[in-house]
Design a protein around this nucleic acid. Structure first.
Lengths: 325, 325
DNA sequence: CCTTTTACATTAGTTTTTCTAATGATCCAT
DNA sequence: ATGGATCATTAGAAAAACTAATGTAAAAGG
């Protein structure tokens, strides 16, 4: 009665075809679901959509036994060739590009103190993405394309066409072992630091600046050992060797476990922060976007959570929430 | 660091591929949008999704001029072959099945009085579906697969595996031309019908039953002409030849235009109703579902609307809302 | 040139589709 | 029979796709 041609193609629902192909290959909705990282119900729905669209059943369902009926058998081979062709074409377009592998570069201190323990959560949420984490001090140029995304500590402004999102701010405050606090010389106010060994690391962290900000003078900041890595300084402090000036992100796990405590509240906001960084050209790739969104979300959640834990510990330092050392 | 293989395929987003293919074929997002019955923005988004996924641009956009770049040229041919293959396979599965053509069977009276004027709305909402309407008195067996869907007037219970939805109830009431009401013998109560010519059709409608229900006796229902089609009876009434016993659905358009009026309010609920019917096996096909949902929705809306119009006319019969005859 | 037209891009918000979790039904093996 | 495995169904949540409005840039027309 009413006519509307439209010269284009008449393709069945493509996502339903993908589910059907997987289901037909496995002869199992459940296994197809595993392959496609969805639930069995999703496959069931999609196959049904395709069957409704075509107006034919494609499977013979007899309880547990699943098999292709005639229509299904007619459909499958051509479909598989078609999908092969698509895979092949897609590979041709950008060889060496793998949308499943995400390469991430971070500093070792951040990897150990923060990222490693959280990465499993990412793998769980995005089982289709395979993270390759590179922890290294080497300055990596994200613009050169060696890595998809990085976490950098710094002022937040880098040259080049980058997408930069602030991840976490960094505060500086002294930490020491609970034993030192209980049994060492008094350590109630910043001034008391003069009776303690100060542990130094050779990076950003600077006792002089902190003491100045805390309004304390006359303490010799040349005293005490200097260690190469931030984490070693914290370990040393946890072992009771002295008081370290900690960066909040790196110290968080020691504070949470009770291995380190903060003798005083005062903390100096660091001038640097952690940023998620990626080349602008890559920033919108799904795998990159998912990582960025995930890490920003986790850092937000954890900030809330850790603040609560730290508060609890401060209220009752004798019973650390976790096993401790 | 974390590894998760998954032996399956690695296909790009399939719907994005469809948009790309159409856009590449037309070398125009706008024309691709027309073909796929979506907006230009949708194509733009989908192409972008594909480009992000693959990590390469596929088009060269230079203002108005759109062309495939190297990557796009590498992708297109294989993709088209793949889509050809899919179309071919889908056709093989169910030849003679066309998901764009919907065959509908109704009685001529319903087609003319109700469906024809509303069908354009359906075409507008679902431009991808091409309705083939068959108006015929022949009893058609929907189970035999000759038609996808039908509208049937009857008791609502038919044999066979059918999906049946009640569409509209049918009331019986007398109608006549406004001229007859003004200038003819009085016609204020059902009793006054004795001074008028009764128009009969040979179908369901029966003056005897109506008069009985209205509590009037002693009127000779054998008087007056009998016509073959319900609509002819109404036309005859509109021409002032007498009073017809109308079925509400069929009379609605005459009432709306003012060509017919109801001399009294009393109406007898018909024992039959209109139903949307299709074979259970076809009832979930997208084209069938869309038609069913549409017709049910329209009938609901129109019921509300027409009730309002009829009320308005009853309040002021001299100024029909529509042009009239 | 300047204006208008045409076409793609972008944004925010809505709609539609897809997916999940829970549960049910069925078949098979023990 | 009973338990385990598998697909189906349902309602509701999450994600994807789409639209409308608007922006931007290049080409075409005066």
């Amino acid at each position: 009665m009413i006519h509307e041609t439209g010269p284009g193609r008449r393709l069945p629902p493509l996502n339903a075809l993908r589910s059907f192909e997987a289901a037909a290959r496995h002869l199992s909705f459940t296994r197809a679901a595993v392959e496609l990282h969805v639930t069995q119900a999703a496959i069931s729905h999609q196959v049904r959509v395709l069957e409704d669209h075509l107006g034919v059943r494609l499977f013979r369902r007899r309880g547990r036994a699943l098999s292709l009926n005639e229509a299904g058998q007619a459909l499958l081979p051509g479909l598989q060739e078609a999908f092969d062709r698509i895979e092949e074409s897609a590979k041709k377009v950008h060889p060496g590009h793998d949308e499943r592998v995400l390469t991430v570069t971070v500093q070792p201190s951040f990897a150990g103190a923060w990222l490693i323990s959280r990465l499993p959560r990412f793998a769980e949420r995005h089982p289709g993405i395979d993270v390759k984490l590179s922890a290294s001090h080497d300055r990596v140029d994200l613009m050169r394309g060696d890595f998809d995304v990085g976490v950098r500590f710094g002022p937040g402004a880098w040259p080049g066409e980058l997408r930069v999102d602030r991840l976490m701010d960094e505060d500086l405050f002294p930490v020491c072992s609970p034993a030192l606090l209980e049994r060492g010389p008094p350590l109630e106010r910043p001034e008391d630091l003069r009776y303690h060994t100060l542990l130094h690391d050779d990076h950003v962290v600077d006792w002089r600046m902190w003491l100045l900000a805390a309004g304390v003078s006359g303490i010799d900041t040349a005293r005490g050992p200097m260690l190469n890595f931030s984490d070693l300084v914290l370990q040393s402090a946890a072992a009771g060797h002295g008081v370290a000036l900690a960066r909040s992100v790196l110290a968080a796990r020691y504070l949470a476990s009770g291995e380190l405590v903060r003798p005083f509240e005062f903390s100096l906001p660091g001038k640097y922060a952690y940023y998620v960084v990626s080349a602008a050209a890559k920033a919108n790739q799904p795998k990159v976007r998912k990582f960025r969104e995930w890490i920003l979300e986790v850092s937000r959640e954890d900030a809330v959570h850790e603040a609560a834990v730290v508060d609890a510990l401060r209220a009752d330092p004798a019973t650390p929430r976790d096993g401790g050392k």
